[in-house]
């Protein structure tokens, strides 16, 4: 089968594709969306959706950069960087937690709540930064040292891999993970079985905010800046990755390995199209077809 896949071996695209450097490029490129998609899988499994992740990512990049450039002469780089990351992650998790509390307590549809926080958190990020990018720069200071470290391919890919393993374990091997699947499968039945539905939902959205925060820290390092306009449309990329990986927007069906495959599918596809110099507008059309195909194939197989 692989022979068929790589039949136009003569073209440069396929040869370059298999280079180790290119393969790790792909992994690094998909990591940010991939990390968000992992937690998005949890949210969608409960039958919800989180549209605010792109904005939370922007908030996280902004806070990371703001803290890093706060003072120029820092003695302990490690502590300063740790504080910046902790601040960004705490704020992101808090944003997700608020999503969860509103959804679970006021029983407003997740789409509406996270649509609101998508707008509100974006506004917060812009307000904090006065809508300006915060350059981390390329000097010899603590900020640049942060960026150099966390931009490192192995750190980025390592974070993605570690989070994948962790969340896969949580979803398939813990009581919390089973609750997530059960609520998505049948929330009413979950209620009748005495599951802590509210608590599970709150944690799921907090987790989603936290993972967007992790993605934001990596984004800040990758781009050497805090950017309140970053991550526009990332929520849809993350949802697409989960959906291609077999997650049902109705809830109850989906898995972490599936989402990883979905994420890689998009990454590999984009990379191959680019290597073969396909117009980037065509790229979008091909993605559209893949999404529909993926879901259509799953629909057919589940109807058998």
């Amino acid at each position: 089968m692989l022979a068929v896949i790589f039949s136009p071996v003569a073209s440069d695209g396929s040869r370059i594709f298999l280079e180790l450097g290119n393969l790790s490029d792909i992994l690094r490129q998909v990591s940010i969306i991939g990390i968000i998609a992992l937690a998005m899988t949890f949210v969608i499994l409960t039958g919800g959706i989180d549209l605010s992740v792109g904005s939370i990512l922007a908030l996280s990049t902004s806070l990371t950069a703001m803290w890093l450039v706060r003072s120029s002469n820092v003695a302990d780089y490690g502590a300063h960087i740790a504080a910046a990351i902790a601040l960004a992650l705490a704020a992101s998790a808090a944003a997700g937690l608020i999503n969860g509390v509103v959804i679970a307590s006021l029983e407003i549809q997740p789409f509406v709540v996270t649509l609101a926080s998508m707008i509100g958190v974006r506004g917060l990020a812009k307000w904090l930064t006065s809508n300006a990018n915060i350059d981390i720069g390329f000097g010899r200071d603590v900020a640049a040292s942060f960026a150099e470290t966390f931009r490192n391919k192995s750190i980025v890919i390592g974070s993605y891999a570690a989070l994948s393993a962790l969340l896969w374990f949580v979803l398939s091997r813990t009581v919390f993970g089973r609750h997530v699947r059960a609520i998505g499968d049948n929330e009413r039945a979950g209620r009748y079985a005495g599951l802590p539905i509210r608590r599970v939902k709150i944690w799921v959205y907090a987790l989603c905010g936290l993972s967007a925060g992790v993605a934001g820290v990596l984004y800040a390092a990758e781009n050497h800046q805090g950017n309140p306009n970053a991550g526009v449309g990332y929520e849809l990329d993350a949802i697409a990755a989960a959906v291609i990986g077999g997650t049902s927007l109705a809830g109850g069906a989906g898995s972490i390995p599936g989402t990883i495959v979905g994420t890689l599918t998009i990454g590999v596809l984009t990379n191959m199209l680019r290597l073969n110099n396909i117009d980037s507008n065509v790229e979008m059309m091909v993605k559209a077809v893949i999404i529909i195909l993926a879901v259509a194939v799953q629909r057919r197989s589940s109807n058998d």
């Binding site: 009581v175 089973r178 609750h179 699947r181 059960a182 499968d185 049948n186 009413r188 039945a189 979950g190 209620r191 009748y192 079985a193 005495g194 599951l195 109850g252 069906a253």
Partner: peptide, 21 residues
Amino acid sequence: KGEGLMMRMSVLDNSVMAVQS
């Protein structure tokens, strides 16, 4: 179907649903 079982989950998952803690 509506209030009792999680239809896509396993026999084991459904059986232990109320006693997990």
